[in-house]
Nucleic acid binder design. Structure first.
Lengths: 188, 188
DNA sequence: ATAGGATTCGAACCGTGGTTCAAGTCTTGA
DNA sequence: TCAAGACTTGAACCACGGTTCGAATCCTAT
């Protein structure tokens, strides 16, 4: 019934995300996604309208989670910023799921792009306002908040490029290490 | 003669880099590159063996320039780091030329990848050694040098995603602003 | 049990895009 | 001037990959 269908869709999304991760979005083929998910190529189209929709859902899910982390953050500006950055890194590295996909909004067809861009901008704005508030309260030194925000996002997003699960450092170590450095650059 | 040929190859590389930038590497077509360079699609193959070679040359040229900036840097660790980071941002934003291409080594076919990865690693190692030297000399606070290096690279590489030439800030402002923040996170 | 819908399959369709090619034009050196 | 080779072209080739489709199978509710 409905339950079964929904669960299957999630399985497919996770499988697709793995393929996106290891092949890159453009090089990920529907046939390979189908094989990873354990069904036939044609059958994918019973669950999704096409590759674009799969990609869109992957991206939305990741960004949704990141936005949630912003809402949940409590404490001083520095504490909230650390929490958000760490959550971001964990969404990026732990759930290999859909993390990498959220980086390439350009891969979406023109019409689907707008809502994703809006969400992405909202997320960036939320982080920037934490920075600005920290400055206003005197926690942080004055700085170009927009630029610094993008620098932090670049640093955490970049982890997807070099992180290897079998590498020496765990995702938790990376998360705390990055947050240490990125927040320290803001303090007075 | 030889001169004319070489100049033409450079023109084509620059045109290709512009297309890579605005379309993304995967979506950049040989027909569009040809049009941008002002010659016919088939004629491209008189100057390059194919799309892969064009991409490889674009990436090599950018990385070559960045490595040169590392060699030219003089002064304290902080000064050298600033110089390298600023040069990196400028290579990324000013010469729209081949900058973005260097980010996707994965887009190259398996056989061509090795030399590029080697160069990229050498560049990263050079930056990391500046950080380590700064720590050893007491200029910088102790830190996870490898992780911090990747954070800095992520921040500067990310500029290619959001920078718009018609935007409010010039590339020079971005370069100095980013360097300010990134180096500040290292100081004691 | 059985009709009707959901699911599944794999082959085939078809546009896209990298590449090749045969044939022209232009340049250059003797 | 006149080959010979460099340059140029546009059409055609061909593989790849997203998608469609008709038919077979499974499940569920009555």
């Amino acid at each position: 019934m409905r339950q079964r269908n929904e669960a299957r869709r999630l399985d497919i999304l996770r499988a697709a995300a793995r393929v996106f991760r290891r092949r890159g979005i453009a090089a990920a083929g529907m046939r390979e996604i189908a094989e990873e998910a354990g069904l036939s190529p044609g059958n994918l189209y019973h669950y999704f309208s096409g590759k674009d929709e799969i990609l869109l859902f992957c991206q939305e899910r990741t960004l949704e989670r990141m936005l949630a982390a912003v809402q949940d953050a409590r404490g001083t500006a520095a504490e909230r910023l650390r929490a958000v950055l760490e959550a971001h890194v964990h969404s990026m590295l732990d759930e290999l799921e859909s993390a990498t996909a959220h980086l390439d909004v350009e891969a979406l067809p023109e019409e689907m792009r707008a809502p994703m861009i809006a969400k992405r901008d909202a997320y960036e704005r939320a982080i920037r306002s934490i920075v600005e508030e920290g400055v206003k309260r005197g926690e942080f030194a004055p700085c170009a908040a927009a630029l610094v925000t993008r620098a932090m996002l670049g640093a955490v997003n970049w982890t997807a490029r070099w992180y290897r699960p079998e590498g020496p450092q765990t995702s938790a170590e990376i998360a705390t290490g990055l947050s240490d450095y990125l927040v320290k650059g803001l303090l007075k």
